[in-house]
């Protein structure tokens, strides 16, 4: 899709390129400067023990606002209209409920585990840890398989470099940048750079939303969505749009995002007390709300902008057919490139790219650590030396990096990025929900039930569009996800009742 061929030009100028370069170098320099002082402190994780409240909140919301989140949310706003807001509402409500009740996260914090596979071992034994760690890593790597492509589509849309060859060049360049960034040690938990990111992204996101409303007009936005999407553009329960099953699925996704996903669990388990875990979740409900809501609105604004421009409408909203997901992903950055003045465009792009590198870095570390610590190391009777672990982690980081480059270039998405991420994540979390809830709250949950429940997660791959095409079926990904969750729960209960544990794992205490 070459937009310049149809006369669509971005307002991205040399000034913006300069801002991006200076900001990215600056944010890395801040991290390197701070690290000189703190190289001897190794047991402190961000948002954790003793972090002051404002910096804690800034860090927490800053880490939730990644470029990939903004991209998939904007696409969902573009394709779903205002009805997509229910996803943000569901994730805020679940985070608030988890904060008020301590559901899942408080018992995990009390067990003093730091990762989900560690919980598996403490509750169900060594074998469940290895299987669970393998599924977690596979699901997580598949889940981040489209990160590089989403980041590259953002760069293409905002800079106007929209030819197909640009995608390959930008994806490769971004991967090299991310690997260099990770090799520098990553800024994953340097709170000062997280704070700078929070301020920049908050100001630029709110300013962009206000500019969108000013440019398009609120009534025009409502009327255009109403005219082109009808009831389905506003009512999330409308069968022509999302439908009731999708809304229920989103509440599960909200619970997963805040209490079951590995990165969230690490944060919860590193807090100094049970009270601070609950407080963190109550505050983070604002972050979970905003990280989706504002990008949804930018996606809706892009939809209205494209509908008002005949040359763009023919590309992004073709008559009688749905646009390709890769095209709808590019709608928001193209809209920003036309809305924002030079300078502000560079600031937004710089903040987004810095967030992209930080998110990518922490996920690369997360999944390579899971593979090293939870899959490979437990297979050796005497464990692995620290040197071997470090080497293995580095090999996994580079291997995963190459995988997501190849996967992003060759995988035919065929559905909204959010739905792809929900289903690829479901391979892990459908089983994990059952193991966590029953493992923490039901004494009779057994090892056999855990094995069966974990394995059922593979059924979620039926929710991926290319798999459905190969099987010749068409089922909503929400229905697939809900059925697999029900199956995981049923197998956990049946397996536990039919094959109860004779002995609890030695270090598990009720």
């Amino acid at each position: 899709m070459d937009l310049s061929a149809v006369g669509i030009q971005s307002s991205f100028r040399i000034l913006d390129w300069g801002i991006v370069a200076v900001y990215l170098i600056g944010i890395v320099a801040v991290g390197v400067y701070i690290k000189r002082y703190i190289s001897n402190v190794t047991d402190f994780i961000v948002a954790g023990r003793g972090l002051k409240i404002f910096l804690g909140i800034a860090t927490m919301i800053g880490t939730e606002l990644g470029l990939v989140t903004v991209m998939y949310s904007a696409q969902k706003g573009f394709t779903g209209g205002f009805a997509a807001f229910h996803i943000a509402l569901a994730s805020a409500i679940t985070a608030l409920v988890v904060g008020l009740t301590g559901f899942i996260v408080v018992p995990l914090r009390k067990m003093k585990v730091m990762t989900i596979p560690e919980f598996y071992e403490r509750r169900f034994g060594h074998g469940v840890r290895i299987l669970g760690g393998t599924i977690l890593a596979l699901s997580g790597i598949l889940n981040m398989g489209m990160f590089l492509k989403a980041g590259s589509i953002f760069v293409m849309g905002i800079t106007g470099m929209t030819e197909d060859i640009h995608l390959k060049i930008i994806m490769t360049a971004l991967l090299v940048m991310v690997l260099l960034y990770t090799a520098l040690g990553g800024m994953v938990s340097v709170v000062v750079s997280d704070y700078i990111q929070f301020v920049l992204l908050s100001v630029s996101l709110v300013a962009t939303c206000v500019l969108s409303i000013k440019s398009l007009g609120w009534h025009n936005i409502i009327e255009t969505v109403s005219a082109l999407k009808g009831q389905a553009g506003f009512d999330p329960f409308d069968a022509e749009g999302f439908g009731a099953s999708y809304v229920i699925w989103m509440f599960f996704l909200g619970l997963v995002s805040c209490a079951v996903w590995q990165t969230a669990v690490i944060r919860a388990c590193s807090m100094e007390s049970v009270r601070s875990v609950k407080r963190l979740y109550v505050w983070s409900s604002v972050g979970f709300l905003i990280r989706n809501l504002l990008p949804f609105f930018l996606g809706i604004s892009a939809f209205v902008y494209m509908a008002d421009d005949p040359s763009l409408k023919s590309i992004f909203l073709p008559e009688g057919a749905d646009a390709d997901p890769q095209v709808t992903l590019m709608a928001m950055p193209v809209f920003l490139s036309r809305l924002l003045p030079a300078g502000l465009l560079g600031i937004v792009a710089a903040g987004m790219l810095a967030a992209f590198m930080s998110t990518h870095d922490s996920y690369l570390l997360c999944w390579s650590s899971v593979l090293t610590q939870d899959v490979v190391a437990p297979c050796f009777k005497n464990g692995l030396s620290s040197k071997a672990r470090l080497l293995l982690t580095r090999v996994f980081i580079v291997t995963i990096g190459i995988f997501i480059l190849v996967w992003g270039l060759w995988y035919d998405l065929g559905q909204d990025l959010w739905d792809y991420m929900a289903i690829s994540g479901a391979i892990y979390f459908t089983g994990a929900i059952a193991l966590l809830i029953f493992g923490l709250y039901w004494k009779r949950a057994s090892k056999v039930g855990a094995y069966l429940s974990l394995t059922s997660g593979f059924g979620a791959v039926v929710g991926l569009k290319p798999v459905q095409t190969a099987l010749g079926i068409e089922v909503s990904s929400a229905i697939v996800g809900l059925v697999v969750i029900a199956l995981a729960v049923a197998l956990m209960v049946a397996g536990s009742l039919l094959y109860p544990d004779r002995n609890k794992p030695s270090d598990y205490k009720e």
């Binding site: 404002f54 909140i57 800034a58 919301i61 205002f82 009805a83 807001f85 943000a88 509402l89 929070f198 301020v199 908050s202 100001v203 709110v206 939303c209 609120w218 409502i222 109403s226 009808g230 009831q231 506003f234 009512d235 604002v286 709300l289 905003i290 809501l293 504002l294 609105f297």
Partner: peptide, 27 residues
């Protein structure tokens, strides 16, 4: 449909205002 239009309008502007407030205080 009118209910949902009003609901999402109030929801969006209230959330934007809360977030802007939180962002200023936290910054």
């Amino acid at each position: 449909m009118n209910f949902w239009i009003y609901f999402w309008t109030v929801f969006f502007f209230a959330s934007l205002a809360v977030f802007a407030g939180v962002a200023i205080v936290v910054s």
